[in-house]
Design a binder for these strands. Structure first.
Length: 281
DNA sequence: ATTGATGTTGTCGG
DNA sequence: GCCGACAACATCAA
């Protein structure tokens, strides 16, 4: 489920616990979720710590906790990646862990729950003054000034022979873009997903760059909500005019041309496009 | 029973 | 060493 805006949606749920202490940590040690960290260390350092703040970058979240007192300048950092099926929830006190609730941070007024059935996601832990390298080395956001047409053009040249759809999924340059967002971008830009990345014209690269930014902005506003507002569900406010609602199964129609959509594997992922709008060429 | 799913990573061949 | 293709990972729902 989780791409850029969905990740932000889930982060916002846990932000209900900002300013509150973690009384206890409950986890399923040994689960694959913990492959990149030591569950015992995570438990030791987060118990008694206060959740200070959180941010997202690409498809990842970072939660910062203060210590219980000792080295004042040191923070504890919890990184979360939701993989394919991960989600964060808030449950009331007394909640008992259900299947696949692999990590729970217990606070006095709520429980912060991380659930992930397929366990392609994971958590990481770091202890120190500043955010860990596995966080700081994430590529600059698509909505940041660093994401320029020039940078995109250069990247497409380096990946010239790969289908543009596959290139859009590369987190090193398009952080946060996932399968449905890539399709949404190409559909809006009217570019065929199988086009080699190096074959796009200068004008097409400019359009692609613009639509990347637009889709990120629109997705964040409608899925994660503006400001403090958090929509009741992930999809609650996604307009029917997006490809999103029409791409998941065969037989869909392009919301713009009303012509049939095609679904086929491109770059190893199911890809949906509108042949009437996205031509090869 | 079979198939596919909103993601990443390691491996292999060119 | 870089690039691109693909299998593997673990579970559930249609």
């Amino acid at each position: 489920m989780p791409e850029l805006a969905e990740v932000e949606f889930f982060r916002k749920r846990w932000s209900a616990g900002h300013g509150a202490k973690v009384l206890a940590v409950r986890l399923h040690a040994g689960k694959k979720i913990f492959r990149d960290c030591d569950p015992a260390q995570l438990t030791r350092h987060l118990t008694g710590a206060k959740l200070l703040s959180s941010t997202t970058a690409a498809k990842q979240m970072l939660f910062e906790f203060s210590g219980t007192g000792l080295p004042r300048a040191e923070s504890r950092w919890l990184g979360v990646h939701l993989g394919m099926t991960g989600e964060l929830r808030v449950e009331p006190p007394g909640y008992e862990a259900a299947a696949h609730d692999h990590l729970i941070l217990v606070q006095r007024e709520r429980l912060l729950v991380f659930k992930d059935p397929r366990m392609f996601g994971g958590v990481r832990f770091h202890h120190g003054k500043t955010a860990p390298v596995w966080w700081t080395r994430i590529a600059p956001a698509i909505l940041s000034p660093a994401f320029t047409v020039e940078v995109v053009a250069a990247f497409l040249q380096r990946r010239a022979r790969a289908p543009i759809k596959a290139v859009l999924l590369m987190q090193e340059r398009f952080p946060g873009i996932g399968n449905w967002m890539a399709d949404e971008v190409l559909w809006r830009a009217a570019i065929h997903p199988q086009r080699p990345a190096g074959s796009l014209s200068v004008a097409e690269v400019r359009t692609l760059h613009r639509e990347c930014r637009k889709v990120c902005r629109l997705a964040l506003d409608t899925i994660a909500g503006e400001g403090d507002y958090l929509p009741p569900d992930l999809n609650a406010h996604i307009p029917k005019s997006w490809l999103f609602w029409h791409r998941w199964s065969d037989g869909g129609r392009c919301p713009r041309t009303k012509q049939p959509l095609v679904r086929e594997e491109v770059g190893g992922r199911t890809t949906c496009w509108s042949p009437a709008r996205q031509k090869r060429g």
